[in-house]
């Protein structure tokens, strides 16, 4: 097994160009398990956890670029303006895991249960990929996450980071599992209200082959808020049963399966409950903020 220990992103990209088989390794919280259990024997590995270029973030013209190598611990301690992302990050594993696991790892593994992924989907984020010579390519999240544990990363590329437009408005991440910690989600949901665009976005994890948005539920809620004049006035009364109907439509967007962690029927029900609650929280939050 060839191990590459580059010191800069440029070095890492050169290595990826000449040794495209090299599997990028960051926090190791997914890959090392496969290695320890003899389920993976890559010909080569490329250590990326210390590349300074990947461990950074920056704001640029109303967008935010989060480096692929930023750990969940750093998101929780330093990026508090992104509340749903912080909530999702705090549910990742344990302190030990959050100190190592990275946002780029969730994207690289592309598991439908990756906790940060529904947040990125609700942010309408795009994934920035880079290869030797500094050439970048940007893909919307849904063109990057193409299936269960499958993404659109080319062999000569690395994930540079993920970028989204910074919006104003409430939002949350919630997750169902058998414990309050160290749990792989049975269902996860992120809801974001974009006050500027007057749009509501909701994304689901662990209930389909990849992360799913619920466009029908989004349109229904956005329209209900518009009809009630609630975008202008957070205290405006919504028609009855909006929350219930929203939950139904969220559940209808799920494409769950039965597996060891839960049944499809339970997962669909979880989506209904999480959707209803998330919308109720967001509306309440808007009232409190006026």
């Amino acid at each position: 097994m060839r191990i590459h220990l580059p010191r800069t992103l440029d070095e890492a990209l050169e290595i990826k160009a000449t040794d495209p088989e090299a599997v990028p390794l960051a926090g190791g919280t997914d890959l090392m398990v496969l290695l320890n259990f003899d389920r993976l024997r890559p010909a080569a590995m490329l250590e990326v956890s210390r590349l300074p270029e990947l461990r950074a973030w920056r704001w640029e013209n109303g967008t935010f670029l989060l480096g692929a190598g930023v750990t969940y611990s750093r998101i929780v301690s330093s990026l508090t303006e992104f509340k749903p992302l912080v909530e999702a990050s705090r549910t990742v594993g344990s302190p030990q895991i959050r100190n190592r696991a990275t946002i780029g790892g969730n994207l690289g593994t592309a598991s439908p249960a990756g906790d940060a992924l529904p947040v990125l989907a609700a942010y309408d984020a795009e994934v920035v990929l880079i290869k030797a010579g500094g050439k970048t390519r940007t893909l919307p999240w849904h063109q990057f996450l193409v299936g269960p544990k499958r993404n659109a990363l080319a062999p000569d590329e690395l994930i540079l980071g993920v970028r989204w437009t910074v919006t104003r408005g409430p939002g949350s991440f919630s997750k169902i599992g058998t414990r309050n910690a160290m749990v792989i989600a049975v269902a996860g949901l992120c809801l974001v209200m974009d006050e500027g665009q007057r749009q509501l976005r909701v994304a689901l994890g662990s209930v389909g082959p990849t992360i799913l948005r619920a466009p029908d539920a989004e349109a229904f809620a956005s329209k209900a808020l518009t009809g009630a004049g609630a975008w202008e006035d957070p205290r405006a009364a919504l028609p009855p049963r909006v929350l219930e109907e929203f939950g139904e439509r969220v559940a209808a967007a799920a494409r769950p399966i039965d597996d060891v962690r839960g049944t499809a029927a339970y997962r669909r029900h979880a989506c209904r409950v999480l959707g209803r609650r998330a919308l109720a929280w967001a509306l309440e939050d808007r009232k409190l903020r006026g």
């Binding site: 220990l5 926090g27 090392m32 320890n36 250590e47 344990s94 190592r100």
Partner: peptide, 28 residues
């Protein structure tokens, strides 16, 4: 050996980590 139990907890450059999930070469 999968980061679930914490029995292998150590500090790597001051951060609490599961040493079973760190490739030894990463600690070089």
């Amino acid at each position: 050996e999968q980061g679930e139990c914490g029995s292998c907890s150590v500090w790597l450059d001051g951060d609490l980590v599961c040493s079973c999930l760190v490739l030894a070469a990463q600690a070089h």
